[in-house]
Simulated assay, not measured.
Amino acid sequence: MTIKLKLELASGQSLEGAPLELLSKGVPIARAMVDERGDVTFDAKPGVAELAVRVDRSILRSG
C-alpha cells in the first residue's frame, strides 16, 4: 500500500530531506524522506490500524 502526504509548515520553512517514520501502534512500520516539494511517500503493508507520522529522532543526535 502506498501512502502519500504533503507537508507544509506555517512558517514557510522547508522540511526537505527530513526523515519521517510511519507508525502503527507506536511502532515504526515504514520510513521515508521529505522531497523538495514537501511530498512524502510511504510503502507499507495493507492493514487496518491507526497511523501516525513523526520525524525520525536520529536527526536530533549530534555526531
Rank of each mutant, 00 (worst) to 15 (best):
I3P: 00
I29Q: 04
P28L: 04
G63D: 12
L5H: 08
L23I: 07
A10R: 10
F42R: 01
S24C: 13
L15K: 00
L22C: 02
T2F: 05
G12V: 06
S58F: 09
A10Y: 11
V34G: 00
T41Q: 10
S14Q: 12
S62D: 03
I3Y: 02
E36W: 09
L51D: 01
L7M: 10
A49Y: 08
P28K: 06
L20K: 02
G47V: 06
V55K: 08
L5C: 10
V34R: 00
A32Y: 01
I3F: 01
V27G: 05
K4G: 05
E8A: 15
M1T: 12
L15G: 02
E21N: 15
L51W: 03
P19Y: 03
A10V: 14
P28E: 03
A52L: 12
A49V: 07
V53E: 01
R31G: 15
A30K: 08
T41F: 05
V48C: 05
E36R: 15
E36T: 13
V27P: 02
L9T: 14
A18N: 02
G38K: 00
D56V: 07
A49P: 08
V48H: 09
L15F: 01
T41Y: 04
R31D: 11
D56H: 11
G38M: 00
L9D: 14
D43V: 10
K45Q: 14
